[in-house]
């Protein structure tokens, strides 16, 4: 599908993680190109989140490499570059959306400050500009800009999740890692959030890795899918292909487990 001239943004090769002898994930390899959305599905405990943490520089894998195409220095192994460079990547080029917004937000400071934090972290020192960017992003994630100076604890779950997304996207990252972004939200809020995510991803040309156990989310958002079971990828391919014509018995089970109302 991708022209050979464009190198992948992120490539994982043989990523394996053991937690003191207990398998997290084993020998996972894949590539993501700019603007592409990769879904990772599978049941609870199948190693989805472990994989996400391994490829987002949050958890060093036991074996395997993760290479990221940096803006200026070509491909770099994210666990071999210097720590300052890695931390800079994590707060500029990358975003990470947690399942529980409380983990990704600073709950003690206002919504505006939550969005502005990343800007200040990369050197923004003009209050008016930071404020302007925060307003802009609240608007983009369809939040009432009048709530800008309120604490996130006064927000509903869906609003907190949208705030977390705004906070991550404000530095214009190239890739966003999402761990169950719609988990814990009711269906109508989920639908709006998915709509928003789909719009943002296509408007900004973001690449994204979305971990979910919800096949509907995977179908709506992702271009390609990895199906995981017991730490291993059992099937991968285009989303429609995997979901409409699953080949592996586990994928077939997964797809047939969904109740259609």
């Amino acid at each position: 599908m991708q022209p050979d001239a464009v190198p992948p943004l992120l490539s994982a090769r043989g990523v394996t993680k053991f937690y003191d002898g207990i398998l997290g994930c084993r020998d996972v390899s894949f590539e993501i190109w700019p603007g592409e959305v990769l879904g990772v599905v599978g049941e609870s405990g199948s190693g989805k989140t472990t994989l996400l943490h391994c490829i987002s520089a949050r958890l060093e894998p036991t074996a395997g490499t993760v290479e990221y195409m940096t803006r200026h220095d070509g491909p770099a192994d994210i666990y071999r570059i210097s720590e300052p460079a890695r931390r800079l990547l994590m707060r500029t080029d990358w975003g990470f959306v947690h399942q529980n917004p409380r983990e990704g937000l600073r709950m003690g400071v206002s919504a505006g400050a939550n969005i502005g934090e990343r800007l200040m972290a990369v050197g923004a020192r003009h209050y008016g500009n930071i404020r302007h960017a925060a307003t802009d992003w609240l608007d983009k994630v369809e939040m009432d800009t009048g709530r800008m100076d309120d604490l996130p604890i006064t927000f509903s779950g869906g609003m907190q999740q949208r705030l977390q997304i705004a906070r991550n996207l404000v530095t214009a990252p190239r890739i966003v890692f999402m761990d169950e972004p719609t988990g814990g939200l009711d269906v109508s809020v989920q639908a709006r959030l998915l709509d928003l995510l789909r719009g943002l991803v296509s408007d900004l040309g973001l690449a994204a890795v979305i971990v979910t156990h919800d096949l509907a989310v995977a179908r709506l958002l992702s271009h390609r899918l990895l199906v995981m079971r017991r730490g291993e990828v059992v099937e991968s391919g285009l989303t429609d292909q995997v979901l409409d014509d699953p080949q592996h018995p586990y994928s077939q089970l997964l797809v047939s487990s969904v109740i259609h109302p």
Partner: peptide, 22 residues
């Protein structure tokens, strides 16, 4: 300590931002 070592002092401005916002 790591933040000091890497001079990651940006988030410190969050507090001043909050002051101005409120």
């Amino acid at each position: 300590r790591k933040m000091h070592a890497l001079q990651e002092y940006g988030p410190m401005h969050v507090r001043l931002y909050e002051d101005i916002a409120h």
